[in-house]
Design a binder for these strands. Sequence first.
DNA 1: ACAAAAGTGTTGCACTTACACCCATGC
DNA 2: GCATGGGTGTAAGTGCAACACTTTTGT
Lengths: 235, 235
Amino acid sequence: MIRYSGQTRILVAVDCIIFGFDGEHLKLLLIHRGFEPEKEQWSLMGGFIGTEEDLDQAANRILKELTGLEGVYLEQFHAMGDPKRDPIERTVCVAYFALIDIHKYEKQISDQYRAEWFLLKDMPSLIFDHQKIVELAKKKLRYKAALHPILFELLPPKFTLPQLQMLYEAIYETEFDKRNFSRKILSTGLLVKQPDKDKRSSKKGAFYYSLHELEYNDKFDAFLNFIPNPHALIA
Amino acid sequence: MIRYSGQTRILVAVDCIIFGFDGEHLKLLLIHRGFEPEKEQWSLMGGFIGTEEDLDQAANRILKELTGLEGVYLEQFHAMGDPKRDPIERTVCVAYFALIDIHKYEKQISDQYRAEWFLLKDMPSLIFDHQKIVELAKKKLRYKAALHPILFELLPPKFTLPQLQMLYEAIYETEFDKRNFSRKILSTGLLVKQPDKDKRSSKKGAFYYSLHELEYNDKFDAFLNFIPNPHALIA
DNA sequence: ACAAAAGTGTTGCACTTACACCCATGC
DNA sequence: GCATGGGTGTAAGTGCAACACTTTTGT
């Protein structure tokens, strides 16, 4: 087998930033490492890429190992290559962020890891440069969600407009006018009103909506402008 | 030295998509490889990362080796990891796109490579998955340039509004109304009118403008909406 | 004087914002 | 019957798109 000569080969890992939404706050799924290095520390879910898989496959595999979930929204957003980022051995990492419906996550799927949800603003310190990766992921998520309908991935298949608005408000750390918000969201044509209501959070109850799959796939890449004054809110 | 055991180490390369603008068309700087593998084929400029450099440093070094330029606009946009993308040996590549003032490029800086500018729509076939990387880069460039003032990096320090408009038109493969275009661009406050004119392309001559550095740095990350109907033009 | 490109203003429309009241229900 | 959250409409302002004529100057 021919190989390139005189070059250093390096470990390549994939790390996943897993976002979830509990109805009120944005959360991150972190793992408590039961193994060296940095045993007993909190970190992002990650792993080395296998010999027969590409990066997306590796990210999906890793996500499944931790959460048991497949078909999750997963997007590559940055590669980190500082030679000193992993003190044990040089590792280049390709970071992905995942958006999951927090209720689909079943605890203790993996016994190698103890996983736990943390509020974004109440996170433990993380190993290596994971803190920095999380910051990048947050920024990227805000950026992308301002223009593309990705936040639905954080909600269950049926959700209410107040729930959706709370999600946007959590992500942008601000408040929106509910009349304008509902008009803007509904005008995209992405939502289908359901006949039933969610009555858990009010006496009157709020109508459920679900995604119009066809429109959703069509408009996913379109430029939709989901938030007012993006100029002010996006770094 | 402690290392992670049982993991495969992989080559990591950086590839640069180098965009230039000749006043009329968007171009790409490609190299004719004088070495194996794929000797005598056209490819993107790339190289393996060094043991002491991070990804950005590697990209800057590689760009300098080919063009002699430093301080160039360079942005990481995607990592490619298909195990079969390089037939010689598995290589993960991190792709960057660079924007340079085409007139700053001096030929034959490197004798390892023969470099040549190609019209984007008139490119030779490229090695490996470089074609795909170029497609991704074009998409990313369009996307980013719709919201951020990056295209100035493709022009000389002094340029005219008609030149700038031609650039935007080349990138989006469409035409804009010059009255609306000039109003929109000038309203950003990013440009400073110069006292002199460029008289090469008309009898009347067009005023030069230069970047207002302070405003440019301030507003670089802002959301500016440089093109009409982004919905229609951005994939 | 004519050709060729630069420069400039206005109007209508669409979208966005700001804002306040009624509705349905469980207790 | 009242408290709680859900749902809706309107008016003013802003930003965007469409559109045509004048200016300059080299030949």
